[in-house]
């Protein structure tokens, strides 16, 4: 078992773990953060597959922009819930 294969395996496990956490963790904010972590790990996986173009796009769009959208939506929900209470 070579070192690079071990790294690939570790990365694949980390991907699956972060994906699982983003669905299973009870706190929504933490779920979104785990999803951003997943996006960054996926960018690493693309780099391992020598797909540098996709790695760049994934880090900027998949993790960055999607993460910003999700966090913004979450914030808006929280604010709406607070408005409803008051």
């Amino acid at each position: 078992m070579t070192l690079s294969f071990a790294f690939d395996l570790l990365l694949a496990l980390a991907l699956l773990w972060s994906a699982w956490r983003s669905l299973a963790t009870p706190d929504l904010t933490r779920a979104v953060v785990m999803f951003i972590v997943f996006g960054l790990l996926l960018a690493l996986a693309w780099a391992r597959l020598s797909a540098t173009d996709i790695a760049l796009a994934e880090a900027a769009i998949g993790a960055g922009l999607t993460g910003a959208l999700l966090l913004d939506a979450l914030g808006a929900w929280r604010r709406a819930a607070k408005d409803d209470e008051s």
Binding site: A19, S22, L23, L28, A31, F38, W46, L49, I54, L70
Partner: peptide
């Protein structure tokens, strides 16, 4: 929101299969 996350995971999985 979780469903949207799950839907994105499906997409990422399909991308990995396609390139891998």
């Amino acid at each position: 929101l979780r469903r949207i996350l799950a839907f994105n995971l499906m997409g990422s999985g399909a991308f990995l299969v396609l390139v891998g």
